[in-house]
Amino acid sequence: MFHKILVAIDASERSQAVFDKALDLAKATAANLMILHVLSGEEEGSPTLSLIGLEYYPMLASEMTELHRKQWTDYENRCLELLRSYAKQANAAGVTAEFTQNPGSPGRTICQIARAWQADLIVMGRRGHSGVNELLLGSVSNYVLHHAPCSVLTVQGLIPADLTATAERSAPVESETVEF
């Protein structure tokens, strides 16, 4: 079935659920895991830097750049620790796991690593962007679904409470007919 499972994680809380799903599949199929994190400014929580308007304040721009460099290094190290933690969890569960952290565009990098590692399956999360948000922000999972060299399993992110409530209100209500 599956021999090599690539699990793409980010630094969000959703990643644990994605990793758990991949680990369950790896245990069930005796597959190896490659745990991947893509360093990208597109990721939620990654350090961002805007130098717009700072051309008039070169000293401040220099300080901002240095602060951003430090924040980025801290971010890289935090994510590497996360990868090590996931690899330890996998090894403790009897699954052979390795990890890699690569810079780049998340969707493209996931597909490139899957191709190079000859993955049978990619397991990744999905934030649930749709409509205008997906058009403006893009969708890593959508890109991977259309460009992956293998099967893809997307683990749905949390559905906001207001959407859940709307769906529950519109769901058919069970009723019982009593005849007299």
Rank of each mutant, 00 (worst) to 15 (best):
Q16F: 14
D74R: 05
D120A: 09
V155C: 13
G45V: 13
R14K: 08
P103A: 00
Q118S: 11
S170K: 12
L25A: 14
A28S: 15
L135S: 06
L51W: 09
S141Y: 04
M1C: 11
L145Y: 08
G125R: 04
L145N: 09
M34F: 04
E63H: 05
V18Y: 00
G138F: 05
E98F: 00
V123I: 11
H68D: 04
G125H: 08
V173F: 04
L83E: 09
S85N: 14
Q16H: 15
E44D: 09
L33I: 04
H146N: 13
S141P: 13
E55N: 00
F19I: 10
S15R: 08
N142W: 08
D20H: 08
A165F: 15
C150T: 06
Q156D: 13
E44M: 12
A26H: 01
T96C: 10
S130K: 11
I113N: 06
P172Q: 06
Q71Y: 01
K70C: 01
I9M: 09
L49C: 14
I9N: 03
E176T: 03
Q89I: 06
L145V: 13
V140W: 03
A167F: 15
P58R: 08
A171H: 05
S15W: 08
A31E: 07
T29Y: 09
Q89T: 14
E134D: 13
R78Y: 03
T164A: 15
A26V: 02
E66W: 00
L54C: 03
G53H: 02
K70M: 05
G138K: 02
Y56W: 06
T96L: 15
R126G: 10
M1Q: 07
S141R: 10
I35F: 01
L145C: 05
L82N: 02
E63I: 03
H37N: 15
H146W: 15
Y56S: 14
A90E: 05
I52H: 15
Q101I: 12
A90G: 11
T109W: 00
M124K: 06
E66V: 01
V144S: 02
T48I: 12
H146I: 15
T177D: 03
N91W: 03
S175A: 09
S15Q: 11
M1E: 14
R69V: 02
S141C: 15
L163F: 11
R69S: 06
M64E: 11
E176I: 07
P172Y: 01
V7L: 12
W117I: 02
K4F: 02
